[in-house]
Design a protein around this nucleic acid. Sequence first.
RNA 1: GGGCCUAUAGCUCAGCCGGUUUAGAGCGUUCCCCUGAUAAGGGAGAGGUCAGUGGUUCGAAUCCACUUAGGCCCA
Length: 938
Amino acid sequence: MSYKDTINLPKTKFSMKGNLVQREPGFLKNWESQKLYSEIRKARAGAKKFILHDGPPYPTGDLHIGTGLNKILKDIIIRFFTMKGYDAPFVPGWDCHGLPIEHRVMQEIGSNAKTMERIEIRKKCKQYAEKFVKIQMNQFKSLGVSADWESSYLTFTPQYEAGIIEVFGKLVEKGFVYRKLKPIHWCMRCETALAEAELEYRDTLSPSIYVNFRILDDVAGIFQDAGEGDVHILIWTTTPWTLPANLAIALHPDYKYRAVRYENPKTGEKVVTIIADSLVDSIMNLLKIEKFELLGITSGHTLEGLKYEHTLMNRCGTIVMADYVTLSDGTGCVHTAPGHGQDDYLTGLKYNMPILSPVDKSGIFTTEAGDFAGQKISDGNKSIIEKLDESDLLLHKREINHSYPHCWRCREPVIFRATEQWFVSLDHCGLRENVLDQVKKTRWLPSWGEVRMSNMIRERPDWCISRQRSWGVPIPVFYCSHCKESLLNIDVIYHVRDKFLQCGADSWFYKNAKEFLPEGTNCPNCNSTTFEKENDIFDVWFESGSSHHSVLHKRNDLSFPADMYLEGSDQHRGWFQLSLVPSVAAWGCAPFKTVLTHGFVVDEKGEKMSKSLGNFVSVSDALKEIGGDVLRLWTASMEYRNEMNTSRVIIERMSDSYRRLRNTFRYILGNICDFDSEKDAVEYRKLWEIDRWALLKTEKLIKSVTAAFEQLQFHRVYHTVHNFCIIEMSSFYFDILKDRLYTFSKNSIERRSAQTVLYRINDVLVKLLAPILVYTTEEVWMETENRSSSVHLADWPDVREQCIDEGLEKRWESIIKIRADVARELEKMRTEKHIGNSLEAVIDLYTEDDELFQFLEEYQSDLPMIFIVSDVIISKEPLHSASRGENFKRLFVKVRLSESSKCERCWNFRKEVGKIVKYPTLCNRCAKVIDQIGEQNS
RNA sequence: GGGCCUAUAGCUCAGCCGGUUUAGAGCGUUCCCCUGAUAAGGGAGAGGUCAGUGGUUCGAAUCCACUUAGGCCCA
């Protein structure tokens, strides 16, 4: 029998390689078949709830790594709270309606789209959404996300839709909803509204004209030397057809404006006009005016409120202030038509101007356009220029090539046209103030979220909730067939809600208006009983923003408000804000208590990820390459509040790091394979001192890791655990332990002492990491005996305070430092090729420090084990050629080769080796062990 | 252009309500050792003008201002 066979080498099925990609699906399957999610919920029945409400992603394509990261973070939190004893249900959702899906479906349909019924389009959209919900759900599952997948919330289900209608009803009831004109992109040929995503920008030739408007007010007080005569203000536009809708001219309040007197080249007349000071030269050059004189100069804000004559329309306009005015083109004086531009619209609202838009759906001027009524706007361009030219107000005209939006379907240029839209008022009943108040009461993580949200709420205009699309929830409003008056009525809305609950919102597209109206509904205006349905649908943000009602209020296992919302920082403007507004409006409080945000996943240079740049990482690729647990470890390792860099190198590092954790488990599992904690455990006071030290480090680990989890700082969890495994365990404790575990007899108290602690370490580590490494910890769990079915049903480990001995920790801190000083000397010997294995060495320690000497003496018998050398000799006598320690300056270390022989079994160099007759190649300790084994066998 | 945020070794993070003489870990890298955790393990070393500039101060990675680069959201 070789002595090697008498050594207790580690033994475990837990492999060194993770093979995560192959192995993880098996665990997933087991969890599904044992219905683990429901088992966990059952185990927590009646416990205090923790509600993290899932923000619904959009089901198009493979999951972006950022979407995966978001769900992993949520999952880590849910799992931690669950293990801490909370009942933490997790109901995931998808935001299924909306333009991106409709857009893609329309592209697939192609030219048939125009003749297709809306209900048909909706059917295809639904199929599309369902397909990707399924794909994404599987990807989330593969990431190890534990959730109530079977009853996920989808925004196109009747229950959800009914909830949206209820939120709308509540807002109508409280008077927040109104209808008003607003300019939107419009295709005159298709006669339809277009969203930004449906525009194609192409270079187009447009007229470019400079037009003077005559100021009606006396500006002598502002420009003293302007003299008698008329003063004008010069504007520039590339859309002459919008001039009939001109109501204002916008200036920048801080820019300088100059009155210029020039000679009209055509008439020879002297004219004064106002333009931005810094543009005077370039404009005069463009207008080919050589003779001009600079008159007074003033800041834009001094001109606010002046009236000017609108020559074409026989009315006057106003000079207004706007921050978006630039000096990059034009004159610094911006033609403003609130019915025909986004900026113009907002300025119009600010100055309380009507949203004038004298153009009908096919692009023909209405009677509001005066003389131009009946003309197509394309012809209007020409006649407007002509008319301006007649009145000598047109200073310059040419054609310019610029990028202009076109309809994605018919490729015709689009226009901005004001149409009636539905709005939620932010200022009705002090809503804005109430929302701001709720913002203050919410806990924002990081705290700057509060500032960001408050700024946004303070600034934002009323919310336009209507869209002219097909794939969404219809706005439950009717119009009288006779007088065209809108019917916005609570009873009607709840009636529609009931219908939707029964047959879904699709019914709106194939049933008559009558079927949605309560019996006997008539028009409050003209008493008519025939109505038409609204064509518009809700903004999808109104849908997802209603999830607090459709999901939190409606589900028995959830509750309102949620404890936490957790999304990317872009959702401040998105889901957070647009959930907050309806929630406060309808129920007077925020839908969340805490809002946690994470940054974006960017590439290794910190630049944004996009498919076109080629630095895009998808979840499915990452899963294929590295597996769910490594991806989760990567997620946990980063400070997610900032941007997070990804690259192949970073992910490879993560695999290294994972392997290290895995091997820590493997070492323990292999060395406790013959340990039965019930029978073999050694009681605390009988443990070896180094074992008590390892135990105290483990208990302290629980403390710091728990704190890190509680503060939602998973990167601290990662670093703390990782450092524990590497510094305290692998390179110190585990290394030292090998001698005792392998060479002492199996059942010796020395070996059982070590195993008792290893068992505890394993039990703690597996639980601390369970929220992050969901698969690997389960694999570890399965390897140990007497386990219930899953680590994910386990409770969070409690700290055994009685094991935390600060004095012990301090003493061992010194020992570790001394060990480092010794290691440095051993290394020197190794480099000089005097020794290989450290057991070949004997260490001489010398110090004149009494305290240190006493300390060393106290540990003398343990020091060889600690240094992993064959002997340690302490002396007070100076040593020849000893080196001074770096950690302990008063300690001198000398390494020399042992003069004894090597024990064949334990490899220690011992005096007695060769002197034991029965076992000439063994040391005393091993001889005893072999005797014991012999006795057991006989 | 505006609101909010970020910037410490190749990578991931500490330190930051100013002050333990040479700014800490771990990973990676280099060199060495082991071959009884072995496609593992151990040891030693190299590596940072704390994005830049200016200021406050006896003293700044830490406070202030500006600049640069990047991110989210608007315009």
